[in-house]
């Protein structure tokens, strides 16, 4: 074999290896059959070009490009969104993506690898279209939260330092209140064990039962009728004054019947 042939074979072999390597890294894929979606974010939480895209936890694509676009506004809501992330999604998972699908930026693995998680939408909603722009869910800003909680903790400490005297007083008062309440509860418990008190409670219970029975009876039609008759009688007796009643009571027949 000629040296030129051997060198040529080496080059071809090297080229084949490079293609295989690029394919393994996902830089080159001639068999790719993926759809593209544009996601709009205001904060991307560290996602990078090449980060995986997952649907229900399964890798179905990757982040193709990240573009800064300060002038961009969402076509439907008019919201200003400054970051456009282009992702690819394999054809096999495309039908799972619907108009109400949500796009989250998540963290996975020991090294905290960032990935884009897509929640599948409901089947009654329409499928997404190729190249559609969708608003993604901005991930929570942990750094901002920490900074805010740090500021809040500072304010609380400041407030405690300023009002230390009154706070101590309040705490002491609360302490006394709790002690008194505890004493009252203990006294109540002690009292409830006294036989006299038990008797009183039982009697009260009987009185309450009787009262309930009486009030129940008062609601019956007979009682209502009786009450109406009494009312009528009182109204009829109303015009009568003292001398007339006296005269009436002093009549012989009445007197005899009463006494």
């Amino acid at each position: 074999m000629k040296p030129q042939t051997k060198v040529g074979l080496m080059f071809v072999g090297a080229l084949v290896l490079v293609v295989i390597f690029a394919f393994a890294l996902g830089k080159f894929n001639p068999f790719s059959d993926a759809h593209e979606v544009n996601l709009a974010y205001n904060f991307a939480g560290g996602i990078e070009v090449g980060s995986p895209v997952r649907v229900m936890g399964i890798k179905v694509g990757k982040v193709r490009s990240i573009e800064f676009n300060p002038e961009f506004k969402m076509p439907d809501t008019g919201e200003e969104v400054k970051l456009l992330i282009k992702i690819t999604v394999d054809k096999r998972a495309w039908s799972s993506l619907r108009a109400d699908s949500r796009f989250f930026i998540n963290l996975a693995g020991v090294i905290g690898e960032k990935f884009l998680e897509i929640s599948p939408g409901s089947s009654d909603k329409p499928e997404l279209t190729h190249g559609q722009v969708i608003r993604g869910e901005d991930p929570p800003r942990i750094d901002q939260m920490i900074s805010q909680s740090y500021a809040l903790a500072g304010k609380i400490l400041d407030m405690v330092n300023k009002n230390e005297g009154s706070m101590v007083e309040t705490i002491e008062t609360l302490n006394k209140l709790v002690t008194n309440f505890d004493k009252a509860l203990k006294q109540l418990e002690k009292t409830s064990r006294d036989p006299e008190v038990t008797k009183i409670v039982k009697n009260l219970s009987i009185i309450m039962s009787d009262g309930a029975f009486f009030s129940q009876k008062l609601r019956t039609p007979e009682a209502i009728e009786t009450m109406a008759l009494i009312n009528k009688l009182i109204k009829r007796l109303e015009p009568l004054d003292g001398p007339v009643i006296k005269k009436f009571l002093q009549q012989d027949g009445i007197k005899a019947k009463l006494f």
Partner: peptide, 13 residues
């Protein structure tokens, strides 16, 4: 040029 190929064959192959 041929010498380069000969050397290349020696170095790589």
């Amino acid at each position: 040029m041929k010498d380069i190929f000969v050397q290349l064959e020696f170095v790589t192959w």
